[in-house]
Amino acid sequence: MTGKIRGAVLALAGVTLATAASLATPGFAQDRPGPGGATVEVSTEGQEVYEQICQACHMADAKGGGEPGAMIPALAGNANLADKDYPIIVVMKGRGGMPWFNGVLTKEQIAAVITYVRGHFNDYHDPVSVADIDRIVAANPPVPECNTCGH
């Protein structure tokens, strides 16, 4: 894995509390908010994870944005998502400007949100499971090479 994760992840009833140590306290002491920002609750439901986390960059319509050469990739209508391993690797390891979410989101949250993005913004309806994520973790494939994969 790319990221060394120090945060503990606690599961509460229906809600998870993600201690995002890797993103809230990155590397050496950066300027950062401090203790308050370390923990907030992220939903376990796919659509809500999308709205709470992914849509910050990929936008509410999953169409991404930006100018040529400085783009946020679209997830809607993205042929790379046909193979479910691709989004699992990218979410777990990060790619280019996108950070990894391993340790920020639980495996359940990652499976749920990828299932949602593939099914809702694309036409790929086979669900992604925690077992799929475990399979990728065990195989540890490299991050796919492509420039702004979502175009």
Partner: peptide, 13 residues
Amino acid sequence: AYPFGPGAYMLAG
């Protein structure tokens, strides 16, 4: 507001 991590994604979205 000045969050990093999940709080920052929530607000940014």
